[in-house]
Design a protein around this nucleic acid. Structure first.
Length: 110
DNA sequence: CGGGTGACTTTAC
DNA sequence: CGTAAAGCCACCC
């Protein structure tokens, strides 16, 4: 029976995040849009949380609309996320990612 | 089917 | 810059 919903959303988020190139970041809203939810970017972060503990998702490359590291608290230490991004060459402005140069947009997600 | 929850977003003050 | 509220949708109980 139409079990299509069943974690299909998770699967999409998983694919998208995994496609984020090294040294780039993307936003929850963008992922949500590509995943088919357009809104409710909350589910993206929530899905990440569920997958991040069971997969090797680069969830540190996912930030909010402002480029702020909202999920840093879930990385063990609140500084780990920023360190990881800086380690990849991502530049920060204050406590936010320079989205003008490091924002990546998921183009193809079947 | 309904209530609680959440790593978001936007508007408003 | 701060908090507050509403909208949003999937998962869990």
């Amino acid at each position: 029976m139409n079990n299509k919903k069943n974690k299909d959303f998770f699967n999409k988020v998983y694919q998208i995040v995994e496609q984020i190139p090294y040294g780039k970041v993307t936003t929850y809203g963008l992922i949500a849009q590509r995943a088919g939810l357009k809104s409710s970017a909350r589910m993206v972060g929530w899905a990440l949380n569920a997958y991040a503990y069971s997969t090797a998702l680069p969830c540190h490359r996912v930030v909010n609309r402002n480029g702020e590291l909202t999920g840093k608290n879930y990385f063990g230490t609140p500084t780990m996320m920023r360190e990881l991004l800086e380690s990849e060459g991502v530049q920060f402005i204050d406590d936010r990612v320079d989205l003008k140069r490091f924002l990546w947009t998921p183009e193809e997600v079947l």
